[in-house]
Each structure stands twice: as C-alpha cells, then as structure tokens.
Amino acid sequence: MSLKMRIFLYGLLLVLCVPFVFPTWWMITSSFKPNASIFAFDFAPSTWSLEPWRQVFTMQPFAQQYWNSAYIAVIVTLGTLVVASMAGYAFARIRFPGQNVLFLVVLTGLLIPSEVTIVPLFRMFNSLGMVDTHWPLILVPMLGPPSVLATFIMRQFFITLPGELEEAARIDGLGRPAIFRRIALPLARPALGAVAIFTFLHSWNLYLEPVVYISSQTKYTLPQALTQFTDAYQGQLWNVQLSAASMTAIPVLIVFVIAQRQFIEGLAHTGLKG
C-alpha cells in the first residue's frame, strides 16, 4: 500500500473516531463542571469540582440503584446461560418426539418484541403482586424473548459439534446430562461468552420495563435513576446527571478494554455469523 493511501486511511479513521470518542470525553469532563458553566465550550473544565460526583449519592440512593442493576444483570445472565444452553443443546443434539414443533414454538419469541406484550405482562405481574419488585426485570429477560435469541445462538453452536465426541463418551458410559456438562458445555465456551455479553448488556440497558414496573426510588435500576437528577424544582442538573452517567459507563468500559479481544472475537465467531 502506498504511503499516500496509508495517510488517507489513517486520516479517515481519525475523523470517523470523533463521534465515538467525543461524547465519552465530553461526558467525563463536563461532569466536573459546575452546573452554571456546563454549556461553556471547554475541552476541560477551568475549575475541577468533585461536588457533582458527591451529589449523585446525596440526591438518590445511587449505590443501592447501582447494586440493583448489577445483581439483576448477573442473575439474568447466569439464568439465561443455564436455560439457553440446556434448551439449545436439547434442540441441537437430542432427538425426541415433537422436537421441531416445540422449537418453532420457542422460536416465535424472536418475532415478538417485549414491547408488544408489556401491557398484559404488567397485568400478570400486577395480579401476582410483583409490580414494583425486581421479579419482572429478572423473569422476563431470563425466560422470555431475550433468552430465545440466546437459545437460538446456543443451538446453532451445538449443531456444529462433531458427533464422534459424544459417541465416545457414551461408550465410556456417560449419560446425557454428564455429556452435556462435561463435554458439550466446555466446548461451547465462546458461544456462552457471546450469550453472556449480549444478555448482560441487554439487562443493563433495559429502560422501558423498569419505567413501567418500578416506582420506588430504592428499587430503581441505573437507566431509570439516570433520568431523575433534577433540582427541587425540576431544573435539570446536567453535571450531576453526567457524573452518574460516567459512573455507569466507566466500569464497563474498563472491563471491556481489558477483555476486548474476548469480547469482540467472542461475538464475531458465533452462530450469528450467518
């Protein structure tokens, strides 16, 4: 490749970077500005103030809300891994009557966004007394439409496993559950990784559902909490809001940068490749 071409390509890449990097930079630096000068156009605050970061915790039970989001996302992720890998394995490798019909039944979940069913689900959880609890935020993603996508990814992966491995295990006297646990699952690590990432991010980002189901501040999840930083008379406190947003984004970004290879390649090399 010619030098000119290289310079052109690097230039293009740098320009394209701006909308990806600028927001994060602006979010973090603006979160240290006082609210009065929040709209001043400075690449770094003229005076750094930690006050907004402190206010995040005094205005809302932010640590509690952080914990809510984190524990829900972890339970949903673990639950989905269990549900999806079992179902994916069964649909891919075990033959049983009615299999195809049942697979179709499960697969329709892919077609139905959870937004479609939010009203009846709300009523269902309402009659179970589960509105304003975290149950809907755990059960629906773990067993509903989002986990169907996970099941599909797992099935696509298990189908590609060579049959000989299982056969050998059978001759050694292993039963199905043991084959699944000791042979299939360890091999499925990349697919499990991709499913885990997808599921975690999905739960972490969930917004409509918490807005609908949760009404007590101590039960809010992060996305919901982020929109609530206003002063006593509903003036928007941008700097506090941006501090809270930074706190939600930075830890995940750090984990991502450390494990970026696993992240990206895990996603790239799954059944989603088409």
Partner: peptide, 11 residues
C-alpha cells in the same frame, strides 16, 4: 404516570 401505575399495580 407513576402514581397511576402504582394504583394499577395494586400499590
């Protein structure tokens, strides 16, 4: 909206 949702939610 929040209050009405609380009412609808039996809370």
């Amino acid at each position: 909206t929040t209050v009405t949702t609380q009412i609808a939610g039996g809370n």
